[in-house]
Simulated assay, not measured.
Amino acid sequence: MDPDKLSTVSSTTERRPLMAALVLERRILFGCTILVGLSTFIWITAVCTDKWVHIEGGNGIHLPSTGRYLMSSESGVWQICRYVFQPVNATIVLANATSTTTPRPRDQISGYYFTKCTNYLAPTMVNDKPNDPAYDENVANYVRTMVSFGIISLFVMTMGCGFSTYTFRNPRYMFKRLAAGIHFISTACTFVVVQVMMSTVDYLRKNVKFVYPDRAYHYFNISFFLAWFVVLVNCFAAAAFLWYSKKRKGDKAATEELGMADEPTIIGR
C-alpha cells in the first residue's frame, strides 16, 4: 500500500473520536444558544407580569388606616396590586377598630371588592407627596434597582445570543470565551433582580404592614420561577462555552481548519 494513503487512513482513524466530540460540542452549544434566545423572551414575560409574589390575607385582614380588608395581593417588579374589601359604611368599621375593640369580621359587613394598584415608578402625587399608604421610598429604591438590572440583563442576553451564534461561523476559541463572559454577566444581572425581589418581600413583611399585615403570608409565583429559569440557563450557557473554549491545535483538532483557527495570529487594525 502507498505510504501516503496509509498515513491518510491512520490520520482519519485517529480523528474519529475528535469528530464525535466535536459533533457533541456543537449540539450542546447550539442547544445553549437556543435556550438563551428563548430565555430572552421568557425574561420579558417575567418582568412585565405581576406574578412574582402572592401575599395571602385569607378571609380578610383589617387595615385600620383605611377601614378596608386585605384579601390578597400580586406583586410584580415595579407595582403591587391589592385585592381588597371595602365596607359600605367605612366609619363604622373605623369606629370598631379602636385599641379597646376588635373590628368585626369581613363576612359580617356589607361592602364590595375592588383592586388597587401601586406603581412605584410613577406614584400618584398630591402636594409633591405620594398619595398612597402602600408607597414606601425604600421599596421604590428596590424597584428602581430591579428595573435597571432587568433592562441591562435584557440587552446583555440579546448580545450574548448574537455572539453565541457567531461562534458557529468562526470557531476560534477567543470568541467562545467572549460568549461565555457575556453569559456570565447575564447570569449576574438576572440573579441581582431575583435577590432584590426577595429582599423587597422581606422588607415589606417587616416594615410595610399596610401591604403585608402581620397575619398574612406569602409565596412566590410563576414569574419568580421563570426568572430563576433564566438565571440557570445563562449560568449553564456560560459554563458550556467556557468549557469548550479550549485551544485545539495540531493533532488535538478534529479538522485541519479547526486546528488552524486556534493557531496564534496577529489581529491587525
Rank of each mutant, 00 (worst) to 15 (best):
T102Y: 03
Y69H: 06
V93N: 11
G259P: 12
I61A: 00
A216S: 15
Y166N: 01
V193S: 03
Y120T: 07
S245H: 14
V208A: 10
T165S: 09
L22W: 12
D262L: 04
G60A: 05
C48P: 00
N234P: 06
V47H: 05
P130Q: 05
V84H: 02
I185D: 01
S39M: 10
T101S: 13
F163A: 02
C235V: 01
N170L: 02
G111S: 05
C117P: 08
L35S: 11
I152K: 06
S199V: 00
A238Y: 04
E25P: 05
F41H: 10
D251G: 07
R15F: 06
V9S: 06
I266N: 08
Q79K: 15
V9E: 13
V192I: 15
S99V: 07
T101C: 02
E74W: 03
S10K: 11
T12I: 06
F41G: 06
W228H: 08
V23K: 11
M146P: 08
G31V: 02
T124S: 14
I44G: 05
P17W: 05
R172K: 15
V143S: 09
A97N: 14
S245W: 10
S99T: 08
L29V: 03
T115L: 06
H54Y: 14
A239L: 14
M1Q: 07
M198W: 03
T167K: 01
W43V: 07
A240W: 05
H62F: 10
F149T: 06
K246N: 13
G250R: 13
G67T: 06
S164V: 00
E257L: 12
A254T: 14
D251E: 15
I151D: 01
S110A: 12
A188P: 04
F241P: 08
E263G: 04
L38T: 11
E56M: 07
E137C: 03
T255L: 10
T45K: 12
V147E: 03
V194A: 14
D4C: 07
T124E: 14
T145H: 05
N234F: 03
T102Q: 09
E74K: 08
Q86I: 14
I92R: 12
T45R: 11
T100S: 10
P17A: 08
L38D: 02
E14F: 10
F236G: 00
G162T: 06
V201I: 02
W228S: 04
G76Y: 01
P87H: 09
Y212T: 11
R26W: 09
F184R: 00
C189M: 13
M197R: 03
A20E: 15
F229P: 01
D202V: 01
F210L: 07
M125F: 08
W78I: 04
F241S: 05
R16C: 09
Y83C: 00
F229C: 11
L121F: 00
M19W: 10
Q86N: 13
K249Q: 15
P171R: 12
A237Q: 04
M71Y: 09
I80K: 14
G160M: 01
